[in-house]
Amino acid sequence: MSSTAKKAICILSGGMDSTLASYIAKNDGYEIIAVHFNYGQRTEQRELKAFRDICNDLGILEKYEIDIPFFTQIGASALTDSSIDVPTEGVKPGVPITYVPFRNGIFLSITAAIAEKEEATAMYIGVVQEDSSGYPDCTDEFIQDMTKAINQGTKEETKIEIKTPLVHLSKAQIVQEALKLDVPLEHTWSCYKEQNEACGVCDSCRLRLNGFKEAGSSDPIPYKAI
């Protein structure tokens, strides 16, 4: 693309949601710059592989792999503290122990710095409000407030829109949309626990598998237990 092409920074974890959001960004006509965060999560290496595979699929040339070591110092989440077990008995009411404190706020802040440097006008994030695990940093209201803060705290000529194309979709709708756009779902990774075969029982696996089931399709990644 030419240097005058509109640019978007896509926060790409390597999961199904962020991958679909990145494909939507491409369909929206943006030149994509991808950003991935290694933050001490249990499946850090597997997510990084997924990120790199998807960047290849999308032909993304410019990407950032950002290390955030302090989440393991903070702990408080089963994703970043190995002494806390990842729950496997299904989604329960309230904010689950897999919630990483203010993770999306920190991701968006770092991405905003990249967006300002790259003169991007959009940031895509695959947050899902209605079918998530109840994370407070996945809501419309939070994203609107972050957008305001980011534009308030950057240069006057910097105008950034945070795009959340999946925020009101169910997991089944996400699967359907991904299939429609030929998203390589076999390259995505959602499991909170395992890096070779997905566990099939953590909240993320359950939501993903249920989405495929409701969409009348089968998940192409390997599972230990279904």
Rank of each mutant, 00 (worst) to 15 (best):
S2L: 09
S2A: 13
A5T: 06
A5E: 06
A8F: 01
C10A: 05
I11K: 03
I11R: 02
L12A: 04
L12I: 06
G15T: 00
M16W: 01
D17L: 05
T19L: 00
T19E: 01
L20D: 00
A21G: 00
Y23L: 00
A25K: 02
G29D: 04
E31R: 10
I32T: 03
I33L: 05
V35C: 15
V35W: 15
N38S: 15
Y39R: 01
G40M: 11
Q41D: 02
R42G: 07
R46F: 00
L48N: 03
K49C: 00
F51Y: 04
R52P: 04
N56Y: 03
D57A: 14
I60C: 07
L61I: 03
D67P: 10
T72D: 06
Q73A: 13
I74M: 08
S77D: 03
A78N: 02
A78C: 05
A78V: 04
L79N: 12
D81I: 09
S83Q: 10
D85Q: 15
D85K: 15
T88M: 15
T88P: 07
T88E: 15
E89V: 11
V95T: 12
Y99C: 01
Y99G: 03
N104G: 06
G105I: 02
S109D: 07
A113C: 12
A113W: 06
E119F: 11
A122R: 11
Y124W: 04
E130I: 15
D131L: 08
Y135D: 05
P136M: 06
P136Y: 07
D137L: 05
T139N: 11
D140Q: 13
D140M: 14
E141T: 14
Q144M: 08
D145F: 06
K148F: 12
A149H: 02
I150S: 09
Q152R: 10
G153T: 11
K155Q: 12
E156G: 04
E161M: 14
K163A: 15
T164M: 09
T164I: 10
H168V: 00
H168Y: 10
L169H: 04
K171C: 06
K171S: 08
Q173K: 13
Q173T: 05
E177R: 03
L179S: 08
L181D: 01
D182E: 14
L185Y: 03
H187I: 00
H187M: 00
T188K: 00
C191K: 14
K193M: 15
E194M: 14
E194F: 12
V201D: 08
C202N: 09
C205T: 11
R206D: 08
R208D: 09
F212E: 09
F212Q: 12
A215E: 14
I221S: 03
I221C: 10
P222H: 10
Y223S: 11
K224G: 02
A225S: 15
